[in-house]
C-alpha cells in the first residue's frame, strides 16, 4: 500500500535492522531490571545502604584494639507477625572497643505446640557503620527450626573494625523475627535430611 510495502528493499532492511536492535535493547533492559536485584544487594553490602549486612560469616580480623574509644552497641529484637516465638537477648547493650570481638547470646523459644521455622532479619544503623561490622557468627545467617516448646540459645559473634568512622559512637543492631513459609521450610528440611544432617 505504502512505499514500504511496495518495495525499496534498502529501506526495508534498514528498518528491520533498527527494529532488531531495539528489540535487543529491550530484552537487555528487561534482564537488566532483574540483574539490578543482586546488583543492589552487592551495592548495599559494599556501601552499607539501608543497613543491609553480609548474610554470610566473615572472618575475624586480627587487628590492634583501639583502646582510646568505646562504642556502644545496642541490640533490639522485634517480632514480625505470624511466628509464635519469643526472642530475647541477654543484654540490651554492651560497650566495645573498635577491633575487639564480642559475643552476645540470643534465646529463641517456640511457644506453640507445633514445629515452626523462623528467620531473624538483621538491620544496622547508622548505615555508615554497616561496612565496619564483621559478623563472625550469627543466628541471622540461617533459618532456624524450633520444635514445639523448644528453647534455643544462639550466639552472635562480631567485631567492629578499627576504621569505624570517628563520629560513630553508637551502633544499633536490630533483629526482626519472621516466619519462614511452611512450604519452603519443608523443602529445606527435606534437603537437609537428604544430606544426612541433623535436623
Amino acid at each position: 500500500m505504502s512505499r514500504i510495502e511496495m518495495g525499496n528493499d534498502d529501506q526495508r532492511s534498514a528498518i528491520r535492522r533498527t527494529v532488531w536492535r531495539s528489540v535487543a535493547a529491550l530484552v537487555g533492559m528487561f534482564a537488566f531490571a532483574f540483574a539490578l536485584v543482586p546488583l543492589y544487594d552487592v551495592f548495599c553490602e559494599v556501601t552499607g545502604i539501608n543497613g543491609k549486612v553480609e548474610t554470610s560469616a566473615q572472618a575475624l580480623v586480627n587487628e590492634e584494639i583501639d583502646d582510646s574509644r568505646y562504642v556502644t552497641v545496642q541490640f533490639i529484637t522485634r517480632n514480625g507477625s505470624g511466628l509464635p516465638w519469643r526472642m530475647d537477648v541477654e543484654t540490651r547493650q554492651i560497650r566495645v572497643h573498635p577491633g575487639q570481638s564480642a559475643e552476645v547470646n540470643f534465646t529463641f523459644n517456640n511457644q506453640s505446640d507445633g514445629v515452626s521455622w523462623g528467620r531473624a532479619v538483621p538491620s544496622v544503623s547508622p548505615s555508615s557503620a554497616t561496612r565496619h561490622l564483621r559478623k563472625v557468627s550469627c543466628f541471622c545467617f540461617d533459618e532456624q527450626r524450633l520444635e514445639a516448646g523448644e528453647r534455643l540459645e544462639l550466639p552472635l559473634v562480631f567485631q567492629l573494625a578499627r576504621d569505624l568512622p570517628e563520629e560513630v559512637n553508637s551502633v544499633t543492631l536490630v533483629y526482626t523475627l519472621y516466619p519462614v513459609e511452611t512450604r519452603k521450610a519443608q523443602l529445606q528440611a527435606g534437603a537437609k535430611v537428604l544430606e544426612g544432617d541433623e535436623v
Binding site: N79, G80, S81, G82, R86
Partner: peptide, 15 residues
C-alpha cells in the same frame, strides 16, 4: 493476637 498473622495487616501484639 499475640503472634499476629503473617502476610496480613494483623501485627503481633506480643510486645
Amino acid at each position: 493476637i499475640i503472634d499476629g498473622v503473617s502476610g496480613t495487616a494483623m501485627p503481633a501484639f506480643r510486645s
